[in-house]
């Protein structure tokens, strides 16, 4: 795609080349690659500008370091945190919570979704109850969960699993229900039934919807983790931030926030990667997959 863009740029060139010096070709290529690189870098221009302004503001004393420390100072304390091993330890703990909660919630959501999606009886039995429970914001349960599990790992994993379960359940259930009936009928006419029909027709037909559920619930996962760690924890990124707040270490608070953002971005990229891998057959994803 960017190739055709370059082509369009080179079009008016040949006429000039005939009159220009022999190395005009090289110059043109250089100019073009700078232009192409520039277009690539453009989205980063504004953040970079803000960073420079921020640093300048801090250096000139416009921004108090209690409000927002200078980027350079934040970088320095980041290095400190990494060196002391504190950061890695807390990062590991946070990720461990996030992913074990996600895994448990996703498995429960998938199993329930497939079950209610493929059996009318299970739907009658379960769906109304799940829809009712779904309407309670899971974070509202935090005090109750702390009463049940204390502020140990269990409470955080439980809350995350609870939050992750519903988007995955809903998307799996609706995904199954929206699989093309004609394809299912075709599968039956061509000798598929039971597990074969599920594997060849129903599961792949539900996959796009499940992936939507996964992407959505990854967002829920980070949000729940942040809230749970900020309210009640004795380790993890959120604890590190709250602890730093008590000692007015604004730089560490900012680092924790930036790390949360980075983790969220990485998880989203992983989910997109899965989409490209599993939905290669989908016209929408085929271009990037090729």
């Amino acid at each position: 795609m960017s190739g055709s863009g370059k082509e369009a740029l080179t079009l008016p060139q040949p006429a000039q080349m005939r009159t220009a010096a022999p190395d005009a070709g090289f110059g043109r290529r250089l100019r073009l690659s700078v232009a192409a690189g520039g277009r690539h870098l453009e989205p980063w221009l504004l953040p970079l500008l803000l960073l420079v302004l921020w640093q300048a503001g801090a250096s000139l004393g416009w921004i108090s370091s209690r409000v927002l420390p200078a980027p350079r100072d934040i970088g320095a304390s980041f290095v400190e945190l990494v060196k002391s091993g504190q950061l890695l330890k807390n990062l590991q703990i946070s990720c461990g919570r996030a992913f074990s909660g996600f895994f448990i919630g996703a498995v429960i959501g998938l199993v329930l979704g497939f079950w209610t999606g493929t059996s009318r009886r299970m739907e009658r039995l379960l769906d109304t109850s799940v829809q009712m429970v779904r309407n309670i914001p899971h974070l509202a349960l935090t005090p109750l969960v702390i009463l049940w599990f204390g502020i140990g790992e269990d409470s955080k994993v439980f809350l995350i699993a609870l939050g992750v379960m519903f988007p995955i359940y809903l998307n799996t259930f609706h995904g199954i229900r929206s699989v093309d009936r004609q394809l299912i009928e075709m599968g039956r006419v061509y000798g598929l039934s039971g597990w074969g029909l599920f594997r060849d027709v129903i599961l792949p037909g539900t996959l796009p919807s499940i992936l939507v559920g996964i992407r959505f619930s990854l967002g829920v996962m980070w949000l729940t983790l942040i809230v749970a760690e900020t309210i009640a924890a004795s380790s993890g990124l959120g604890y590190m931030a709250m602890n730093a707040r008590e000692f007015f270490q604004t730089d560490i608070v900012v680092i924790a926030i930036l790390l949360y953002a980075l983790l969220g971005k990485l998880a989203d990229m992983a989910a997109r990667g899965l989409e490209r891998r599993w939905l290669k057959w989908h016209p929408e994803f085929a271009k990037t997959g090729a």
């Binding site: 004609q182 394809l183 009928e185 075709m186 599968g187 061509y190 000798g191 598929l192 074969g196 060849d200 027709v201 792949p204 037909g205 996959l207 057959w281 989908h282």
Partner: peptide
């Protein structure tokens, strides 16, 4: 045609 979009042409012919 009712082809399964997630199977290649060959995979579709092999359904069942």
């Amino acid at each position: 045609a009712r082809l399964l979009p997630w199977k290649t042409v060959l995979g579709n012919v092999g359904v069942g």
